[in-house]
Simulated scan of single mutants.
Amino acid sequence: MKILFAINQLSEFVGGSLVPVEVAEYLHGMGHDCTIAANHVDEPLAPLVARQGIVVTDEIPALNAFDFDLVWLQNHTAPLLRYEPVDGSRERTLFVFAHLSGLTFHENPGLVFEPLLADVTIANSENLKRHLTQLDVPPDGIVVYPNPAPAGFWRIDPAAEPAQTPTTVQLISNHAPPEIIDALALCSQRGIDTAHIGQAGTYVRVTPEMLGADGAVVSVGKSVQYAVARGIPPYVYDRWGGPGYLTVENFERAASANFSGRCCFRKIDAQQIAEEIVEGFPAACRFLAGLPPGLLRRYRMEPYIEQLLSRIDSAPPNAARLETLIQKAPWLRRERFMALGIRDNFRGHKAGNAKIRQMRRETRKLKRRLQPG
């Protein structure tokens, strides 16, 4: 099958890009022909994806949606595609609209294309599902896709007696607040190995091998599911605060907000964070080891994707979709103009940031050359 992912950016290691990338990697591994099209394509993420044989392009408007069996859409990219019946077009295309947040315009539902085309709407949490239904997205069409982890992350070993303190504490964050950075330093002073994976630390894609045993992970969002899959207790805290280690009392509430910390907005200081990370570690290990298999299955990625594939044959015929699109043509043109403006503005924003970074590098080089001696 041919599968298309249309997103806003394929450059940074962020959830909005990594979610479709993980799905594309799985489908590509099954032998499907996958394309990821983004408004902005750049290092470091895009080359990693392209080297796997997945097609990467920044020319979304050149693509015809009806050439694909499944189209996964994010960030108001649906209006950028063409919808034309030509030789080689599919009789049916399943349209999946994925929403990974409700905080920004980019992540909220589209105005015309999405209501007309959506066969499946994805929300990454129960809270987001409620938000989408308040915007008149039909609840029956919403699938909660809780940032599940790919098979490579799963390693649930038989429960062993946990260590009294973590041997390592890994912070995974692109936007860690000061209290977390300070807490990491306090853990280090106790003789615990610490590391920061993210834009202010070591900026790499998180892999299963990075998440070692006998340690704790401090993070929110996708990395929490990664940690759960590896059997490593996650301490849920970031710029929104958070509940800390997962417990019987807070697990479902934290999950309903996609482990973002927005389940409680609890903000504490560095000293308390460090104490909770160290002192609460054994109990957090025991809680994680005791999670039932049925609950853990919720966070395995592959069953969700298999369910999507099974729905392709029941998608509406593209001929019928085209008739509906033609009836709404003036409204669709309006939304396309808006999507093109969003695309141009975002690409300009990225180009401007790149130019600023280049000028800063050149300024630093010039200062070094002008220094005496």
Rank of each mutant, 00 (worst) to 15 (best):
S256W: 14
C187H: 03
V220L: 12
E275R: 08
V220Q: 10
P234F: 00
A270Y: 08
V228N: 07
E249V: 02
P208Q: 05
R253D: 15
R266H: 14
M210S: 04
K267L: 15
H196Q: 09
Q189A: 15
P234H: 01
K222R: 12
C263M: 07
E252T: 09
R262N: 10
A254S: 15
E252P: 01
F251M: 11
E275I: 00
G242N: 05
R253K: 12
T202S: 14
I268M: 13
G198Y: 00
A227C: 04
T194F: 15
P234Y: 00
T207A: 15
I192K: 05
R253A: 13
V220M: 12
S260Y: 00
V228P: 08
I192D: 11
L186Y: 06
M210I: 08
G212C: 14
G261W: 01
R205I: 08
Q271S: 12
A200K: 13
A213I: 05
Y203K: 02
A213P: 03
P208E: 07
A255I: 03
S219R: 02
Y245N: 04
M210D: 02
A213C: 07
G244L: 09
Y226W: 11
S219L: 09
I232A: 06
V217W: 06
F251N: 06
L211W: 03
R262C: 08
V204Y: 09
A257G: 10
E209L: 01
E252I: 08
L186D: 05
Q199P: 00
N250W: 00
A254K: 02
V224A: 11
V278L: 06
R190V: 09
L246M: 07
V206C: 11
L211Y: 02
P208V: 01
G212T: 13
Y226E: 13
C263D: 14
M210V: 01
A257D: 14
G221I: 02
N258T: 01
V218H: 05
S219P: 00
S188C: 12
V236T: 03
G261I: 03
G244M: 07
Q272H: 10
V278D: 09
L186F: 05
I197S: 10
R253Q: 15
T194C: 14
G244Y: 09
Y203H: 04
G201D: 06
A229S: 07
D193Q: 15
R262P: 02
G244V: 03
R266C: 07
R239H: 14
S219Y: 04
Q189M: 13
A227G: 04
V218K: 02
G212S: 13
A216Y: 04
T202Q: 12
D238C: 14
